[in-house]
């Protein structure tokens, strides 16, 4: 097979992907940028407004709060998700009876639709009829308005976010743990290392590629948080504004209020931010991830 033919074949093989990406992502993104310079009416009529949308965006307190909240969910969520799921995966990897039961139990949220999780927790959190306040009352703790008190609503969302994500990340980490060859452990035991030393000196470094993967996946997930907020909190309340993330705010603006131009501007700004954060992450990974 000559070179030209191979090149042609190569192009043909990537053509479906390339065409799809070109239309649905590159062209689409171009359109997004174009829209962000326009004021788009409810039923599609457009007027060019230049940078007006962006100027408005930078002065919009709700956008600032959405931005702050997104960092809150990511900044606290990712470390919590990663550390808790490492511990859980380690526990589940112990050779004990009932392993299959424990694993299935912990994995259930991972295979549950986020929509169902949202509906379920909305009901658990209900200040009047919810299970959580009921149980807290039993141990003498005052009832709280978990999903309607503006001051605590972010924390309530964070708890569910961690609960649901940990379940999924545990699967990946557990798989990572099972790939670590027992040779390392045997050697350590011969050297007389204790459990803690083994965990920190052997397990963690060998698991680091998987941990990195889990970190990235949970970061992408938390930066894009939408479903839980959307389903757990009533949209026209003050609590919703205090729980808003970039994506819920984008949805509200672009599809709830039909401000497509403004929504496009939100999406452009979010993209730049998320791109920067992910880039930094990838740069930092070299410092702590060990590939064998």
């Amino acid at each position: 097979m000559n070179k030209h033919r191979e090149a042609l074949t190569g192009y043909l093989f990537i053509a479906p992907l390339f065409l799809g990406l070109a239309v649905l992502f590159l062209y689409a993104f171009g359109q997004n940028i174009f829209l962000s310079f326009n004021d788009v009416g409810v039923f599609g009529e457009r007027t060019f407004v230049g940078l007006e949308n962006f100027r408005e965006l930078l002065q919009d307190p709700v956008f600032k709060r959405a931005l702050g909240n997104t960092f809150f969910y990511t900044g606290l969520g990712v470390p919590l998700i990663v550390s808790i799921s490492i511990c859980l995966a380690w526990l589940l990897n112990q050779k004990i009876k009932g392993q299959v039961f424990y694993r299935t139990a912990i994995f259930i949220p991972a295979i549950t639709l986020p929509a169902a999780i949202g509906l379920l927790w909305r009901w658990l959190y209900n200040s009047q009829y919810g299970l959580i306040n009921f149980l807290l009352a039993k141990v003498g703790i005052e009832p709280r308005a978990w999903i309607s008190d503006p001051d605590i609503v972010r924390w309530s969302i964070l708890i569910v976010l961690v609960w649901a994500s940990v379940s999924y990340m545990v699967i990946i980490l557990l798989a990572g743990l099972q790939r670590i060859s027992s040779v390392y452990y045997d050697a350590a035991q011969i050297d007389g290392a204790n459990t803690r030393q083994i965990f920190f000196k052997i397990t963690l470094p060998l698991l680091s590629p998987t941990i990195f993967f889990v970190t990235i996946v949970s970061m992408i997930g938390t930066l894009q948080i939408f479903d839980l907020i959307f389903l757990m909190i009533r949209a026209d309340t003050v609590a919703y504004q205090y729980a808003n993330s970039l994506v819920t705010y984008f949805y509200e603006a672009a599809f709830g209020l039909n401000l497509r131009g403004y929504g496009a501007a939100i999406s452009v700004v979010s993209l730049i931010l998320i791109f920067l954060i992910t880039y930094v992450q990838f740069r930092l990974q070299k410092r702590w991830v060990h590939y064998d």
Binding site: Q128, Y129, A145, I147, S148, I233, V238, A239
Partner: peptide, 18 residues
């Protein structure tokens, strides 16, 4: 209060005797 009404319908409160 506002918090209670943001998550529970007034009719629920009424029917449940609250």
């Amino acid at each position: 209060p506002y918090t209670v009404l943001s998550e529970t319908k007034a009719s629920d409160l009424f029917i449940s005797g609250k």
